[in-house]
Amino acid sequence: MKEQDVLELIHTSFTGLLHEGAKGFSNDGALVLPNSGQRLAVSTDAFASDVDFRPFWGTAAQAGGRAIKQNLSDLAAMGAQPLGFTWSLSISHDWLNNSEGFQSFVHGAAQVCREHQLLLLGGDLGWQKEGFSCHITIIGETHGAGLGHQSAQPEESLWLSGPLGESHLGLSLIQQAHHAQPFLSDPQFQTWVQNRSKQERKWVERHLNGHHELGLGHHLNGLASACIDISDGLSSDLHKICRASGVGASLELAPLVQHLPQTTPKQSQQVEHAVLHGGEDFVLLFSVPKAKENELNSLIEAGFCLQKIGQTNTEKSQITLHSAGCTKMLHPLGWDAINLY
Score class of each variant (00 low, 15 high):
255 P>V: 00
82 P>V: 00
74 D>I: 01
254 A>D: 08
137 T>L: 08
283 V>F: 09
246 G>N: 09
144 G>V: 01
226 A>R: 13
271 V>E: 06
277 H>I: 00
232 D>T: 02
286 F>M: 02
182 P>N: 05
169 L>N: 13
263 T>C: 07
196 R>L: 15
18 L>A: 07
81 Q>A: 11
127 W>A: 11
169 L>S: 11
241 I>T: 03
254 A>N: 10
285 L>Y: 05
257 V>E: 06
8 E>V: 03
231 S>N: 10
109 A>Y: 11
20 E>G: 10
267 Q>N: 09
50 D>S: 11
161 S>Q: 10
290 K>S: 03
45 D>G: 08
172 S>A: 15
117 Q>N: 14
321 L>W: 08
83 L>G: 02
202 K>H: 15
154 P>S: 05
124 D>I: 05
52 D>L: 04
157 S>T: 07
156 E>W: 14
200 E>Q: 15
96 L>A: 10
116 H>R: 10
339 N>E: 09
77 A>W: 04
288 V>T: 11
57 W>Q: 11
320 T>P: 06
22 A>C: 15
216 L>Q: 07
86 T>A: 06
174 I>C: 13
303 G>N: 10
313 N>Q: 04
248 G>E: 01
233 G>D: 02
336 D>H: 12
257 V>D: 06
27 N>I: 00
302 A>P: 02
10 I>T: 03
99 S>I: 07
290 K>A: 03
301 E>A: 15
176 Q>S: 15
203 W>V: 01
31 L>H: 11
144 G>I: 00
339 N>M: 07
214 L>Q: 10
144 G>M: 10
316 K>M: 04
4 Q>L: 07
320 T>A: 07
233 G>P: 03
197 S>W: 14
61 A>Y: 10
291 A>M: 09
15 T>N: 12
21 G>A: 04
62 Q>Y: 06
269 Q>W: 08
175 Q>F: 09
259 H>L: 03
90 S>W: 08
43 S>E: 08
334 G>R: 09
308 K>T: 00
262 Q>E: 04
151 S>V: 00
238 L>E: 02
241 I>Q: 07
89 L>Q: 14
106 V>M: 13
79 G>S: 05
155 E>Q: 14
67 A>H: 06
202 K>A: 12
61 A>K: 12
165 G>E: 03
304 F>V: 01
216 L>G: 04
330 L>M: 14
195 N>A: 15
159 W>N: 00
203 W>M: 01
270 Q>T: 01
103 Q>I: 01
151 S>A: 14
87 W>E: 00
279 G>W: 09
143 H>T: 07
104 S>Y: 08
251 L>Y: 05
46 A>Q: 10
3 E>I: 10
13 S>Q: 14
7 L>H: 08
195 N>P: 02
154 P>A: 04
150 Q>E: 15
271 V>W: 05
86 T>Y: 06
107 H>E: 15
242 C>V: 01
341 Y>G: 12
198 K>S: 14
117 Q>I: 01
114 R>P: 00
91 I>A: 07
139 I>Y: 15
